[in-house]
Protein backbone atom coordinates (compact mmCIF):
# COMPACT_ATOMS: atom_id res chain seq x y z
CA UNK A 1 0.00 0.00 0.00
CA UNK A 2 2.75 2.36 0.97
CA UNK A 3 4.63 1.43 -2.14
CA UNK A 4 1.75 2.18 -4.46
CA UNK A 5 1.11 5.56 -2.82
CA UNK A 6 4.69 6.50 -3.48
CA UNK A 7 4.31 5.41 -7.05
CA UNK A 8 1.16 7.40 -7.40
CA UNK A 9 2.90 10.49 -6.10
CA UNK A 10 5.77 10.09 -8.54
CA UNK A 11 3.27 9.76 -11.36
CA UNK A 12 1.81 13.05 -10.21
CA UNK A 13 5.04 14.93 -10.53
CA UNK A 14 5.78 13.40 -13.86
CA UNK A 15 2.40 14.50 -15.11
CA UNK A 16 2.88 18.05 -13.90
CA UNK A 17 6.34 18.17 -15.41
CA UNK A 18 4.87 17.17 -18.76
CA UNK A 19 2.50 20.11 -18.64
CA UNK A 20 5.21 22.67 -17.96
CA UNK A 21 6.54 23.30 -21.50
CA UNK A 22 3.08 23.69 -22.92
CA UNK A 23 2.01 26.02 -20.12
CA UNK A 24 5.06 28.23 -20.51
CA UNK A 25 4.68 28.58 -24.28
CA UNK A 26 0.97 29.17 -23.97
CA UNK A 27 1.47 31.81 -21.30
CA UNK A 28 3.95 33.68 -23.44
CA UNK A 29 2.45 33.39 -26.88
CA UNK A 30 -1.25 33.02 -26.21
CA UNK A 31 -1.85 34.84 -22.94
CA UNK A 32 0.81 37.49 -23.55
CA UNK A 33 -0.94 38.94 -26.59
CA UNK A 34 -4.20 39.23 -24.65
CA UNK A 35 -2.87 42.54 -23.41
CA UNK A 36 -3.77 43.68 -26.89
CA UNK A 37 -7.45 43.46 -25.96
CA UNK A 38 -7.03 46.89 -24.41
CA UNK A 39 -7.20 48.20 -27.96
CA UNK A 40 -10.91 47.42 -27.93
CA UNK A 41 -11.34 50.12 -25.30
CA UNK A 42 -9.07 52.67 -26.91
CA UNK A 43 -8.99 55.11 -29.72
CA UNK A 44 -5.94 53.29 -30.97
CA UNK A 45 -3.14 55.42 -32.32
CA UNK A 46 -0.43 53.21 -33.68
CA UNK A 47 2.20 55.87 -33.14
CA UNK A 48 1.40 55.86 -29.43
CA UNK A 49 1.23 52.12 -29.03
CA UNK A 50 -0.85 49.85 -26.82
CA UNK A 51 -0.65 51.80 -23.63
CA UNK A 52 -0.27 55.36 -24.87
CA UNK A 53 -3.49 55.51 -26.84
CA UNK A 54 -6.43 57.36 -25.30
CA UNK A 55 -9.13 55.32 -23.54
CA UNK A 56 -12.67 55.53 -24.78
CA UNK A 57 -14.50 52.99 -22.65
CA UNK A 58 -17.14 51.15 -24.61
CA UNK A 59 -17.31 53.62 -27.48
CA UNK A 60 -15.96 51.15 -30.01
CA UNK A 61 -18.62 48.63 -29.08
CA UNK A 62 -21.28 51.29 -29.27
CA UNK A 63 -19.97 52.21 -32.69
CA UNK A 64 -20.10 48.71 -34.09
CA UNK A 65 -23.45 47.82 -32.59
CA UNK A 66 -24.92 50.96 -34.07
CA UNK A 67 -23.55 50.13 -37.46
CA UNK A 68 -26.26 48.77 -39.69
CA UNK A 69 -23.64 46.77 -41.57
CA UNK A 70 -22.48 45.10 -38.39
CA UNK A 71 -25.92 43.89 -37.43
CA UNK A 72 -26.48 42.61 -40.92
CA UNK A 73 -23.10 40.87 -40.98
CA UNK A 74 -23.80 39.28 -37.62
CA UNK A 75 -27.02 37.78 -38.94
CA UNK A 76 -25.35 36.57 -42.11
CA UNK A 77 -22.50 35.09 -40.14
CA UNK A 78 -24.81 33.17 -37.87
CA UNK A 79 -26.94 31.77 -40.65
CA UNK A 80 -24.03 30.83 -42.92
CA UNK A 81 -21.84 29.37 -40.23
CA UNK A 82 -24.55 27.39 -38.51
CA UNK A 83 -25.50 25.77 -41.81
CA UNK A 84 -21.85 25.11 -42.52
CA UNK A 85 -21.49 23.63 -39.08
CA UNK A 86 -24.41 21.27 -39.49
CA UNK A 87 -23.69 20.10 -43.01
CA UNK A 88 -19.94 20.33 -42.60
CA UNK A 89 -20.25 17.91 -39.69
CA UNK A 90 -22.91 15.60 -41.04
CA UNK A 91 -21.59 15.06 -44.50
CA UNK A 92 -18.13 13.76 -43.58
CA UNK A 93 -19.75 11.44 -41.05
CA UNK A 94 -22.07 9.99 -43.65
CA UNK A 95 -19.23 9.64 -46.11
CA UNK A 96 -17.04 7.98 -43.50
CA UNK A 97 -19.75 5.48 -42.72
CA UNK A 98 -20.25 4.73 -46.39
CA UNK A 99 -16.52 4.48 -47.02
CA UNK A 100 -16.31 2.07 -44.15
CA UNK A 101 -18.76 -0.15 -45.98
CA UNK A 102 -16.62 -0.50 -49.08
CA UNK A 103 -15.07 -3.91 -49.00
CA UNK A 104 -12.37 -3.45 -51.59
CA UNK A 105 -9.53 -1.83 -49.74
CA UNK A 106 -7.85 -0.51 -52.86
CA UNK A 107 -10.95 1.29 -54.08
CA UNK A 108 -11.59 2.64 -50.62
CA UNK A 109 -8.14 4.18 -50.46
CA UNK A 110 -8.36 5.66 -53.91
CA UNK A 111 -11.65 7.34 -53.10
CA UNK A 112 -10.34 8.49 -49.76
CA UNK A 113 -7.37 10.11 -51.40
CA UNK A 114 -9.36 11.72 -54.17
CA UNK A 115 -12.03 13.32 -52.01
CA UNK A 116 -9.31 14.84 -49.95
CA UNK A 117 -7.87 16.83 -52.90
CA UNK A 118 -10.11 19.94 -52.95
CA UNK A 119 -8.88 20.77 -49.48
CA UNK A 120 -5.56 21.67 -51.03
CA UNK A 121 -6.74 24.13 -53.59
CA UNK A 122 -6.88 27.54 -52.02
CA UNK A 123 -10.02 29.62 -52.22
CA UNK A 124 -8.26 32.14 -54.42
CA UNK A 125 -7.86 29.50 -57.09
CA UNK A 126 -11.24 27.95 -56.51
CA UNK A 127 -12.85 31.37 -56.77
CA UNK A 128 -11.49 31.65 -60.29
CA UNK A 129 -12.55 28.15 -61.28
CA UNK A 130 -15.97 28.50 -59.66
CA UNK A 131 -16.50 31.88 -61.26
CA UNK A 132 -16.27 30.19 -64.64
CA UNK A 133 -18.13 27.07 -63.63
CA UNK A 134 -21.05 28.87 -61.99
CA UNK A 135 -21.53 31.67 -64.49
CA UNK A 136 -25.19 31.90 -65.52
CA UNK A 137 -24.39 32.43 -69.21
CA UNK A 138 -21.30 30.39 -69.92
CA UNK A 139 -20.95 28.16 -66.86
CA UNK A 140 -20.95 24.39 -67.08
CA UNK A 141 -23.36 23.90 -64.23
CA UNK A 142 -25.95 26.29 -65.62
CA UNK A 143 -25.52 24.60 -68.98
CA UNK A 144 -26.68 21.38 -67.39
CA UNK A 145 -29.52 23.10 -65.56
CA UNK A 146 -30.72 24.68 -68.78
CA UNK A 147 -30.46 21.39 -70.62
CA UNK A 148 -32.72 19.87 -68.00
CA UNK A 149 -35.17 22.65 -68.60
CA UNK A 150 -34.47 24.71 -65.50
CA UNK A 151 -33.80 28.39 -65.43
CA UNK A 152 -30.20 29.50 -65.05
CA UNK A 153 -29.11 30.45 -61.55
CA UNK A 154 -26.72 33.28 -60.81
CA UNK A 155 -25.01 31.45 -57.97
CA UNK A 156 -22.52 34.14 -57.12
CA UNK A 157 -24.42 37.24 -58.15
CA UNK A 158 -27.82 36.64 -56.63
CA UNK A 159 -28.12 37.57 -53.00
CA UNK A 160 -30.75 34.94 -52.29
CA UNK A 161 -28.73 31.95 -53.49
CA UNK A 162 -25.28 33.18 -52.55
CA UNK A 163 -25.25 31.85 -48.97
CA UNK A 164 -26.40 28.42 -50.11
CA UNK A 165 -23.68 28.41 -52.74
CA UNK A 166 -21.10 29.23 -50.10
CA UNK A 167 -22.34 26.48 -47.82
CA UNK A 168 -22.35 23.82 -50.52
CA UNK A 169 -18.92 24.78 -51.78
CA UNK A 170 -17.51 24.82 -48.29
CA UNK A 171 -18.88 21.39 -47.51
CA UNK A 172 -17.62 20.11 -50.83
CA UNK A 173 -14.13 21.46 -50.21
CA UNK A 174 -13.79 20.21 -46.68
CA UNK A 175 -15.68 16.94 -46.37
CA UNK A 176 -12.92 14.73 -47.68
CA UNK A 177 -10.41 16.09 -45.29
CA UNK A 178 -13.02 15.96 -42.57
CA UNK A 179 -13.39 12.21 -42.95
CA UNK A 180 -9.82 11.65 -41.80
CA UNK A 181 -10.71 12.07 -38.17
CA UNK A 182 -13.72 9.76 -38.35
CA UNK A 183 -11.97 7.11 -40.39
CA UNK A 184 -9.15 7.10 -37.88
CA UNK A 185 -11.67 6.58 -35.12
CA UNK A 186 -13.30 3.74 -37.05
CA UNK A 187 -10.06 1.80 -37.10
CA UNK A 188 -10.81 1.23 -33.45
CA UNK A 189 -13.88 -0.87 -34.16
CA UNK A 190 -13.41 -4.53 -33.42
CA UNK A 191 -14.10 -6.47 -36.66
CA UNK A 192 -15.42 -9.42 -34.69
CA UNK A 193 -18.34 -7.26 -33.64
CA UNK A 194 -19.47 -7.02 -37.24
CA UNK A 195 -19.20 -10.75 -37.67
CA UNK A 196 -21.18 -11.43 -34.57
CA UNK A 197 -23.80 -8.97 -35.70
CA UNK A 198 -24.24 -10.48 -39.12
CA UNK A 199 -24.54 -13.89 -37.53
CA UNK A 200 -27.44 -12.43 -35.63
CA UNK A 201 -28.97 -11.37 -38.93
CA UNK A 202 -28.28 -7.64 -38.61
CA UNK A 203 -28.25 -5.93 -41.98
CA UNK A 204 -25.87 -3.21 -43.14
CA UNK A 205 -27.90 -0.36 -41.74
CA UNK A 206 -28.33 -2.06 -38.42
CA UNK A 207 -24.63 -2.66 -38.18
CA UNK A 208 -23.80 0.89 -39.21
CA UNK A 209 -26.26 2.25 -36.72
CA UNK A 210 -25.53 -0.02 -33.79
CA UNK A 211 -21.82 -0.74 -34.12
CA UNK A 212 -20.10 1.87 -36.26
CA UNK A 213 -22.05 4.89 -35.12
CA UNK A 214 -21.54 4.45 -31.37
CA UNK A 215 -17.84 4.30 -32.04
CA UNK A 216 -18.08 7.73 -33.64
CA UNK A 217 -20.35 9.40 -31.10
CA UNK A 218 -17.63 10.66 -28.78
CA UNK A 219 -15.63 12.20 -31.60
CA UNK A 220 -18.77 13.70 -33.08
CA UNK A 221 -19.76 15.27 -29.78
CA UNK A 222 -16.25 16.51 -29.30
CA UNK A 223 -15.92 17.94 -32.76
CA UNK A 224 -19.35 19.49 -32.57
CA UNK A 225 -18.57 21.19 -29.31
CA UNK A 226 -15.29 22.55 -30.55
CA UNK A 227 -16.94 23.72 -33.77
CA UNK A 228 -19.42 25.71 -31.73
CA UNK A 229 -16.51 27.90 -30.82
CA UNK A 230 -16.34 28.82 -34.47
CA UNK A 231 -19.95 29.85 -34.78
CA UNK A 232 -18.96 33.41 -35.60
CA UNK A 233 -16.36 32.39 -38.17
CA UNK A 234 -18.28 31.86 -41.36
CA UNK A 235 -15.25 31.34 -43.57
CA UNK A 236 -13.40 34.54 -44.34
CA UNK A 237 -11.06 33.10 -46.94
CA UNK A 238 -13.87 31.67 -48.97
CA UNK A 239 -16.23 34.58 -48.85
CA UNK A 240 -13.70 37.31 -49.36
CA UNK A 241 -12.65 35.63 -52.57
CA UNK A 242 -16.14 34.99 -53.89
CA UNK A 243 -18.42 37.73 -52.72
CA UNK A 244 -19.08 41.04 -54.34
CA UNK A 245 -20.97 44.19 -53.52
CA UNK A 246 -24.22 42.87 -54.89
CA UNK A 247 -24.43 40.07 -52.33
CA UNK A 248 -23.42 42.05 -49.23
CA UNK A 249 -27.06 41.82 -48.23
CA UNK A 250 -26.86 38.12 -47.53
CA UNK A 251 -23.18 37.31 -47.84
CA UNK A 252 -21.27 39.95 -45.92
CA UNK A 253 -19.97 38.32 -42.75
CA UNK A 254 -18.25 39.81 -39.72
CA UNK A 255 -14.77 38.97 -40.93
CA UNK A 256 -15.24 40.39 -44.40
CA UNK A 257 -16.77 43.51 -42.93
CA UNK A 258 -13.84 43.97 -40.58
CA UNK A 259 -11.44 43.37 -43.39
CA UNK A 260 -13.16 45.78 -45.73
CA UNK A 261 -13.67 48.67 -43.40
CA UNK A 262 -11.27 47.93 -40.60
CA UNK A 263 -8.16 46.42 -42.09
CA UNK A 264 -7.88 47.32 -45.74
CA UNK A 265 -10.39 50.11 -45.92
CA UNK A 266 -9.56 52.90 -48.19
CA UNK A 267 -6.19 52.02 -49.52
CA UNK A 268 -4.60 55.25 -48.52
CA UNK A 269 -5.45 55.02 -44.86
CA UNK A 270 -4.51 53.24 -41.70
CA UNK A 271 -6.36 50.20 -40.41
CA UNK A 272 -8.90 50.69 -37.67
CA UNK A 273 -7.46 48.14 -35.30
CA UNK A 274 -9.85 49.10 -32.54
CA UNK A 275 -12.83 48.05 -34.63
CA UNK A 276 -11.19 44.77 -35.54
CA UNK A 277 -10.26 44.14 -31.93
CA UNK A 278 -13.69 44.99 -30.56
CA UNK A 279 -15.38 42.66 -32.99
CA UNK A 280 -12.76 40.04 -32.22
CA UNK A 281 -13.43 40.34 -28.52
CA UNK A 282 -17.14 40.13 -29.08
CA UNK A 283 -16.66 36.96 -31.10
CA UNK A 284 -14.46 35.48 -28.38
CA UNK A 285 -17.04 36.10 -25.70
CA UNK A 286 -19.76 34.46 -27.73
CA UNK A 287 -17.61 31.40 -28.45
CA UNK A 288 -16.63 31.20 -24.84
CA UNK A 289 -20.22 31.24 -23.70
CA UNK A 290 -21.21 28.56 -26.20
CA UNK A 291 -18.32 26.29 -25.38
CA UNK A 292 -18.88 26.65 -21.65
CA UNK A 293 -22.54 25.88 -22.03
CA UNK A 294 -21.93 22.77 -24.05
CA UNK A 295 -19.18 21.66 -21.73
CA UNK A 296 -21.52 22.04 -18.78
CA UNK A 297 -24.39 20.29 -20.52
CA UNK A 298 -22.28 17.35 -21.62
CA UNK A 299 -20.90 17.02 -18.14
CA UNK A 300 -24.20 17.30 -16.40
CA UNK A 301 -26.41 15.17 -18.62
CA UNK A 302 -24.04 12.71 -20.23
CA UNK A 303 -21.41 12.74 -17.54
CA UNK A 304 -18.92 13.25 -20.27
CA UNK A 305 -16.00 15.57 -19.88
CA UNK A 306 -15.20 16.99 -23.28
CA UNK A 307 -11.76 18.15 -22.27
Amino acid sequence: MAKSTRRARSVHWGLYAMLVPGIILTLIYSYGPLMGLVIAFQKFDFTKGLFGSPWVGFDNFKYIFNLRDFRRALGNTLSISSMKLVFGMAFPIVVSLLLNEIRFNGLKRVIQTLIYLPFFISWVILAGIMGDLLSPSTGFLNGILKMLGFKGVYFLGNASVFPATMIVLDVWKGFGFGTILYLAALTGVDPSLYEAASMDGANRFHRMWHITMPELVPIIVLNGTLSLGNILNAGFDQITNMYSTVVYKSGDILDTLVYRVGIIGVRDSIPQYEIATSIGLFKSLVSFALISASYYLAHKFADYQIF
Binding site: T26, Y29, S30, Y31, G32, P33, L34, M35, G36, L37, I39, F46, L50, L226, G229, Y273, A276, T277, G280, L281, S284, S287, F288, I291
Partner: peptide, 12 residues
Protein backbone atom coordinates in the same frame (compact mmCIF):
# COMPACT_ATOMS: atom_id res chain seq x y z
CA UNK B 1 -9.47 29.44 -23.54
CA UNK B 2 -6.60 30.30 -25.87
CA UNK B 3 -8.58 28.66 -28.64
CA UNK B 4 -11.38 31.14 -28.13
CA UNK B 5 -9.63 34.40 -27.41
CA UNK B 6 -6.77 35.98 -29.27
CA UNK B 7 -5.07 39.30 -28.79
CA UNK B 8 -4.78 40.22 -32.44
CA UNK B 9 -1.95 40.88 -34.81
CA UNK B 10 -0.16 43.74 -33.11
CA UNK B 11 0.38 42.34 -29.60
CA UNK B 12 1.32 38.94 -30.96
Amino acid sequence: ITMLIGGGTIPT
